[in-house]
């Protein structure tokens, strides 16, 4: 698994180390435009935008192209953040991958499962990584923000945070920051049933991150990503502290709780199943987001 640090930051010898060029698909829409500004403010090196039919114009001083291919040819970018409506996701994602994008951060919610699956098959053939769809994105505090998360909850530090939910990623990172646990990277895998980067993939992408001291996993009901991750922690004999939170214990069965993926069928996807697997992997599970820093502090103390 390619380290996420390498994709996002590059090697210290690269001329564009820590300044990797990023393009935005859907830059002229309200949403894309707003978040492009916020990403620029954060220091993300956005070099081009793509909106079919608006090529040749400039948007907030950033050149806009009709196609991803043109934007990639002009800038050498391998990273795209995508803000297109869900029904255009498939064609926009295919275009990105076929134009040489290697990391696609797919923000749109409500993408049909089949479109995600088709995109993933193509991504696999082209060695491209997709984060999302329905993700808040990925952020390295004070360095790069690819997505829609607010800046304020995140502080520099040595904890990795992985989450299915966007707002819980912010909430728990905020709690961590307040307690003095800054983050080295935070990543949302998205709330859909099918994730381009699964929880276990994201774990592998950050587990050898420089200076990583511990990982916080923010799960929720639906699917078995948390169970798979717990088994992986056991099998790989991962030594650093891992703590978790699971949302949705009180949710009724067979009801979709906001996220397309947040649904329990029988025991499949239930909070009980996830908590019991985390227990097996010696991963403490917080009862509420505010408990996370305490659990992490205890785990860090034990591992000293």
């Amino acid at each position: 698994m390619l380290s996420i640090a390498e994709i996002l930051q590059g090697n210290p010898n690269d001329s564009d180390y820590n300044k990797k060029p990023v393009i935005v698909q859907g830059i002229t829409g309200n949403y894309g435009s707003y978040h492009t500004q916020r990403m620029l403010e954060y220091g993300t090196n956005i070099v081009a935008g793509v909106t079919p039919g608006k090529g040749g114009k400039k948007h907030e001083n950033i050149p806009v192209y009709n196609t991803v291919k043109e934007a990639v040819d002009a800038t050498g970018s391998k990273i795209s953040v995508m803000f297109v409506p869900a029904k255009f996701f498939l064609s926009a994602a295919k275009e990105a991958i076929e134009s040489g994008i290697k990391l696609l951060v797919a923000i749109p919610e409500h993408v049909p499962i089949r479109d995600t699956m088709e995109t993933l098959e193509l991504a696999k053939k082209n060695d491209a990584i997709i984060i999302g769809p329905n993700t808040p994105g990925v952020l390295i505090p004070e360095l790069i923000k690819l997505g829609i998360m607010p800046a304020s909850p995140f502080k520099v530090g040595n904890i990795g945070v992985l989450s299915k939910s966007g707002t819980l990623l912010y909430e728990i990172s905020y709690n961590l920051s307040e307690a003095g646990f800054g983050q080295c990277i935070t990543l949302g895998i998205g709330g859909d049933p099918i994730n381009g980067t699964r929880l276990v993939d994201a774990f592998d992408m950050i587990s050898d991150y420089p200076n990583l001291e511990g990982i916080v996993v923010v799960g929720e009901i639906g699917g078995d990503a948390e169970e798979t991750l717990a088994q992986h922690v056991i099998d790989s004999n991962f030594k650093k502290p891992v703590v978790a939170y699971i949302a949705g214990r009180a949710a009724p069965k067979e009801k979709r709780m906001g996220h397309a993926g947040a649904i329990v069928y029988g025991n499949y996807g239930s909070a009980e199943s996830k908590v019991s697997m985390f227990n097996k992997a010696n991963i403490p599970v917080a009862k509420r987001p505010g408990e996370i820093p305490m659990l992490l502090a205890e785990k860090l103390k034990q591992s000293d």
């Binding site: 989450s163 939910s165 949302a247 214990r249 009180a250 947040a262």
Partner: peptide
């Protein structure tokens, strides 16, 4: 009521607790 599915689920859990 809240913003974000995860946050609202989490609030539901804490309320039930």
């Amino acid at each position: 009521v809240g913003n974000g599915a995860g946050l609202v689920m989490s609030t539901l859990d804490m309320l039930s607790d």
